[in-house]
């Protein structure tokens, strides 16, 4: 039965991917893409990668789905003239099929049981200060990757923020019913609780800053779309400090050993664990803020209207 489940799941992922790209209507593509995100989360679960399933579910269904749903309102369906040109020429299909077969051949040529760096990570996990191996690799053994990746997040947020118009005044919105207000009021405490739990559990189980940050951003999106919160603007210092405390802390922790003759990102053994936890906590806020900046929401109609819907 396991083989059947894995087989069908592995088979329908590429099929669904092809379906997403083949459909003409954009709304169909977006919904199929959300379904694709769900199935890939199941794929991560079957591949024993709970951390990645967590990030995929938090980011994939929570944010990417909402972001793409938002795109439906401003992009028209594929205009007919473009659609005609979209047909691929036969020789291109042949070339692609040949290269895919070569990739498949290379996959099958890979050694079937090489443990990779697993045993090495296992041997030195205690020195990293955290018990969960993935967090150990992510924030200690290869912490430099994560440092650069925070820079990637900041740069993408800068790019998206610079492009989203801030001056949009919302039209007096009749559609904002009290229901979403209730939903928001009920959801936020649960989201905050689960986010805090995930950051804490990241030390000895799947979880961590990215998952928690994505969940906070999910709550923020609901607040943004129900006019309870304006889009985070770089001009207000609170947003800047919330955004940049995490990176500054992480850079500080990375650069500090240089002053005592040790190497970049060499966390002192005894309190490596606490340092990692503090940095992750600050990064959670940063990631939530960055993911929120990708949403082009509008400022609440009037400052006074903050409370009532």
């Amino acid at each position: 039965m396991d083989v059947l489940l894995d087989g069908v799941l592995a088979l329908c992922l590429p099929l669904l991917a092809w379906l997403v790209l083949r459909t003409e209507s954009l709304s169909q593509a977006v919904v199929l893409f959300v379904a694709f995100g769900l199935l890939s989360a199941l794929g991560w679960a079957r591949l024993e990668a709970p951390d990645i399933a967590l990030v995929e579910s938090a980011v994939g269904t929570g944010l990417t789905g909402a972001l793409l749903m938002h795109t439906l309102s401003w992009t028209e369906e594929t205009p007919p003239d473009i659609r005609a040109r979209g047909r691929r020429r036969p020789w291109a299909l042949l070339a692609v099929a040949a290269s895919t077969l070569m990739l498949g051949w290379a996959v099958l040529a890979l050694p079937a049981d090489s443990p990779g760096l697993g045993p090495l990570v296992e041997a030195r996990r205690e020195e990293s200060g955290v018990k969960h191996p993935v967090t150990a690799v992510l924030l200690n053994f290869r912490g430099y990757d994560t440092l650069l990746e925070i820079a990637v997040l900041l740069v993408a947020a800068l790019g998206a923020r610079a492009v989203n118009p801030r001056s949009e005044r919302p039209t007096p919105d009749a559609g904002d019913d009290p229901l979403t207000g209730e939903l928001f009021r009920m959801m936020m405490p649960a989201l905050l609780l689960v986010a805090g739990y995930l950051v804490w559990v990241g030390d000895h189980g799947p979880g961590g800053a990215f998952q928690a940050g994505a969940i906070l951003a999910g709550g923020g999106v609901v607040a943004l779309l129900t006019m309870r919160m304006g889009p985070p603007r770089l001009s207000s210092w609170q947003v800047r400090w919330a955004l940049l405390t995490g990176p500054m802390l992480f850079i500080g922790v990375a650069v500090a050993p240089l002053f005592t003759g040790r190497r970049l990102l060499e966390l002192p053994r005894p309190y490596a664990g606490t340092l990692i936890f503090v940095v992750e906590l600050a990064l959670t806020v940063t990631i939530a803020m960055v993911l929120l900046m990708f949403f082009p929401g509008t400022r609440p109609p009037r400052a006074g209207a903050e409370g009532e819907p």
Binding site: D177, L179, T180, E182, L183, M186, M187, A190
Partner: peptide, 16 residues
């Protein structure tokens, strides 16, 4: 419990 909450809201919101 969370699925119940979100399903109640979802049904109402989508219908409206």
């Amino acid at each position: 419990f969370f699925v119940l909450i979100s399903s109640a809201f979802t049904c109402q919101l989508i219908a409206r």
